[in-house]
Write a protein that binds this DNA or RNA. Structure first.
Length: 911
RNA sequence: GCGGAGGUGGCGGAACGGCAGACGCGCUGGACUUAGGAUCCAGUGGGGAAACCCGUGCGGGUUCAAAUCCCGCCCUCCGCACCA
């Protein structure tokens, strides 16, 4: 779309005026009221370029924030930068490798921030820049470190050697949440969420945050959010936390020297002098199947494996050791996605505490270090055990049969019967239902001290150590004498040094910075070393919403009274990709801060709005010579030249990305069409929670609308200048009433959406209708030239027109702030449209004098009738039955029923 | 397999028990123009000359009335997935 006119040319003018007159949110300490509104969009990583992934949420929140301010609310709508992180470091690494000088992640980061802030200004976003935070600045990360120390104090932050996911490309570890399942050539593998490289397991000393201690609270908190957070997010979090209720059962394992896993599995005789008895606890959700146990399987990581290895014969030792080594060379997730269930018999036996039976113990790859890392295997009633038992020809024993009256069949030779039912062959529990048996067995075991009911979670503790440079240093000192020593609070922040060789080696870059690394132990004064890992950047972003409430505080993380003024965030807007990661971490941090007594709320975000993705159409050309993505222009050339047939082009809707050449640049569009047109287009695309596809032509509608509105204002301004008051008793005509109706319904519609589900596309549509109405009205009323004084008969119409323009400008101000301001002033506005306040709908204007009603005969519309909106039922019925077409369809039939829904419809039921 | 979202004109989408397709794009015709890829006006779900008929993934049901509610399927997208 080309455009010769320079429209609009007033956006920068208003941006300047607003910048000078901006009133910041009043964040003084005090109690939060209904008029205080904290709206927040997830802060961006400073990539240097504002894309649609930013423009959509920021446009949405800016519109809502502007609306709320016009309603008289005290609105907090801050912006900041999630500024630590690998992309900047990786870019710097690349630049160094290219031979560039003066390269530093800090530099790229700050340059990116400058560029993006400029782009945000061009959009007219009204953020509270005086509260801007950068997670990479010491005045911010000082408090990230402070939180870490508090967590250390409370035992939430702890250090352990653990098998972690390692990304060989990023050369750092990843949290469980940061590992994704990818598929390539039909093979599933676990990959880094950032770069897609397959991850490897690594044994490493690392810091963990005990988020699992909050598992139950995180889960229960979701109930509170049920109606204000998308189901999509709460259900994913529930799933991720993965609470399961079950029973721990203590088997007794008989550890026997010289045991062999080869040959037939025969339990040792009684009173074997070489036997040590030990507890082997298994976790099960199906305690009702305990009499069906035919073997016990333990995870390769299980602590007993080492004990067993020391006892078994040489051959068994070799087999187990090899098997464990091989299994552990895979990540846990890769092991899970492998289709073969494998295991090795240990030659040891375990005693079932309920049945007294002795069953063999296996090490098996399908058993995870979850629960107790050991399971009782019931092939008859568990698919996995069934598969394993079939593979290794282990016995199966049915102990559950379908409940009486159920038409299910249980053929355990074919497949496991996993449904609940009634117990058989289960000693004293025979005849009980599964549910009864689970409860009874749990209670009995607890009474005997051999286990009992427990709750397990899938959620794991959060590993936060990262072996990279551009992150928040961990405020810990390792002293040869004192061990792990926290940095004293007064020494915070532990500053990240600038002069670091950050080329990745697999070792933390800070390790090779002697001045940083060497330190005296704060406890004993001995030579010690700092922890040289940095924190996962998700730590930085887990509490920034609290810092905004008191962003310039250099004495404390924030003033609890100021936080109380704003917390919780009324509306948090962000992408669905954060459904688990950021949103569970942030909830966890908020709960922790709450426990420190610093905030009143358990949950940080009262309402969550998950916006969709703006995608682009990609064009991929696949021929014998090439297989790659092309731009639209390039494609056109290829097609015109005949080098490519239309059949060789694959068009797909995909997430916008550089490599797919399907991204549109919102800032370029702002330059071409103006910020308001782009803002409107983004919101007009559809409801913001849905994914949508960007099409450059889509800007035409909103752009034309803005231009037509503005043109109309300029050409009509004389019509509504200096209007005298309405003469007493003067009435407005039907057309003017219709216009008022359109204008006041726009107010109603906008309020409904801003206070409801944010389907702002329908508000914009309504505004477009109003512009169309205004145009039609001016034409129909023959209004021309200025008003001719008090006795001009067109005064009522002119007043209605002026009112419509006024309402239009004020209702559109949140969406298209520049155009609204310009139009408002062109029509004589003396203050900013944003100070004019939100218009109030006149209930009288919302009622039409005359309405049209459809009349149905047997559910099909056969005519419409016009009648005064005040008409009573009897009048409606009369008119309906007098309608010629209705008569035609009723003729010869008896009217059985007459349904009259006032204001909606009339249905004549005739047979 | 489990969980979530969705399926409406040529397209984006409205309507969440009451005239299906608001609004916009595109398209068709017209006006103005040296010109139109600008602007304005009119039309635009399909079929039919019309009266009308048919239409919201498919099949049932409830109702005077169903895109909307209920039951049973199909398809698409997203997330999780050996968690015992």
């Amino acid at each position: 779309m080309t455009e010769e006119r320079r429209f609009p040319d007033f956006e920068q003018k208003w941006q300047k005026v607003w910048a000078e007159n901006r009133k910041p949110a009043a964040g003084e300490p005090g109690r939060k009221t209904d008029r205080d509104f904290y709206i927040l969009s997830m802060f961006p990583y400073p990539s240097g370029r504002l894309h649609f992934g930013h423009a959509l949420p920021y446009t949405l929140t800016d519109s809502i924030a502007r609306y709320k301010r016009m309603c008289g609310c005290n609105v907090l709508n801050p912006m900041g930068w999630d500024a630590f992180g690998l992309p900047a470091e990786n870019a710097a690494v690349e630049a160094v490798r290219r031979g560039e000088k003066n390269v530093h992640p800090a530099r790229t980061t700050y340059e990116s921030i400058e560029a993006m802030r400029k782009q945000m200004h061009a959009f007219g976003y009204s953020f509270d820049w005086d509260r801007e935070v950068y997670t990479c600045k010491p005045d911010y990360y000082r408090w990230t470190q402070w939180l870490f120390l508090k967590m250390y104090e409370k035992g939430i932050a702890y250090r352990k050697k653990a098998r972690v996911n390692w990304c060989p490309d990023c050369k750092t570890t990843l949290a469980n949440e940061q590992v994704e399942t990818h598929v390539k050539d039909g093979e599933e593998f676990q990959a880094c969420f950032r770069c897609g490289t397959p991850v490897e397991p690594r044994e490493i000393d690392a810091w963990f945050l005990a988020i699992t201690r909050y598992a139950d609270r995180l889960l229960r908190g979701l109930d509170e959010l049920q109606s204000t957070w998308p189901e999509l997010v709460t259900s994913q979090q529930r799933n991720w936390i993965g609470r399961s209720e079950g029973v721990n059962i203590d088997f007794t394992i008989e550890l026997r020297a010289g045991a062999s896993g080869s040959g037939p599995l025969k339990p040792p005789g009684e009173n074997d002098p070489n036997t040590q008895r030990e507890k082997l606890t298994v976790f099960t959700t199906r305690a009702d199947t305990t009499f069906g146990v035919t073997y016990v399987a333990i995870a390769p990581e299980h602590p007993l494996v080492d004990r067993i290895l020391k006892l078994v014969d040489a051959r068994t030792h070799r087999r187990i050791a090899e098997f464990v080594k091989e299994t552990l060379s895979m990540t846990e997730q890769d092991r899970a996605s492998g289709d073969e269930k494998e295991g090795v018999a240990t030659g040891m036996f375990a005693v079932n505490p309920l049945s007294g039976e002795k069953v063999p113990v296996f090490v098996a790859n399908y058993v995870l270090m979850y629960g107790t890392g050991a399971v009782m295997a019931v092939p008859a009633h568990d698919e996995r055990d069934h598969e394993f038992a079939r593979e290794y020809r282990l016995p199966m024993k049915q102990v559950i049969k379908p409940a009486p009256g159920s038409d299910e069949k249980a053929d355990i030779k074919q497949e496991a019967y996993t449904a609940q039912g009634v117990l058989v062959d289960s000693g004293p529990y025979t005849g009980l239902t599964s549910a009864e048996a689970i409860a009874r067995i749990g209670a009995d075991l607890a009474a005997r001290g051999a286990g009992g009911p427990v709750v397990n979670y899938k959620l794991r503790d959060w590993g936060i150590s990262r072996q990279r440079y551009w992150g928040c240093p961990i405020p810990i000192i390792h002293c040869p004498a004192c061990g792990v020593v926290p940095v004293p609070e007064k020494d915070l922040p532990v500053a990240l040094p600038d002069d670091v060789d950050f080329l990745p080696t697999g070792r933390s870059p800070l390790t090779d910075h002697p001045a940083f690394r060497s330190v005296k132990c704060p406890g004993c004064g001995a030579d010690a070393r700092r922890d040289t890992d940095t924190m996962d950047t998700f730590v930085d972003s887990s509490w920034y919403f609290l810092r905004y409430t008191d962003a310039r505080n250099d004495k404390a993380i924030f003033d609890p009274h100021k936080a109380a003024r704003w917390s919780p965030v009324n509306l948090y807007v962000g992408g669905r990709e954060h459904a688990i990661l950021h949103l569970i971490y942030a909830r966890f941090f908020n709960m922790f801060v709450h426990d420190l007594g610093l905030t009143a709320h358990n949950e940080p975000f009262a309402r969550l709005y998950a916006h969709g993705l703006i995608q682009g159409e990609s064009r991929r050309v696949v021929t014998d010579e090439m297989d790659r993505y092309v731009t639209e222009d390039e494609l056109k050339k290829l097609l015109d030249s005949g080098k490519v047939e239309p059949g060789q082009v694959v068009r797909r809707i995909e997430k916008m990305s550089k490599s797919k050449l399907n991204g549109a640049d919102p800032t370029a569009l702002v330059r071409q069409f103006g910020a308001d047109a782009v803002r409107l287009t983004i919101l007009f695309l559809g409801p913001a929670e849905a994914d949508s596809v960007w099409d450059d032509d889509g800007i035409k509608g909103p752009y034309n609308f803005l231009r037509r509105w503005h043109d109309l204002v300029l050409s009509s301004a004389p019509l509504v200048e200096d209007l005298p008051p309405m003469a007493p008793g003067a009435a407005i005509n039907a057309a003017a009433k219709k216009l008022r109706h359109a204008a006041h319904s726009l107010i109603e519609k906008a309020v409904g959406e801003f206070e409801g589900r944010f389907a702002l596309n329908t508000v914009i549509a309504k505004a477009m209708e109003l512009v169309n109405e205004i145009r039609a009205f001016i034409a129909a009323e023959n209004l021309a030239g200025p008003c001719k004084g008090d006795n001009d008969p067109t005064v009522p119409s002119r007043r209605a027109l002026a009112e419509a323009f006024d309402i239009l400008a004020r209702c559109m101000a949140p969406f298209a702030p520049h155009t609204a301001e310009e139009c408002f002033h062109a029509l004589g506005g003396k203050v900013s449209v944003f100070d004019a306040g939100w218009p109030k709908a006149d209930p009288a204007a919302l009622v039409l004098d005359e309405i049209e009603l459809p009349v149905q005969v047997n559910g099909k519309v056969r005519g419409t009738i016009k009648l005064p909106s005040s008409a009573d039922k009897a009048a409606m019925e009369k008119l309906a039955l007098e309608n010629e077409n209705v008569k035609r369809f009723v003729e010869g039939k008896a009217i059985q029923k007459l349904i009259v829904v006032p204001g909606k419809i009339i249905n004549v039921v005739a047979r």
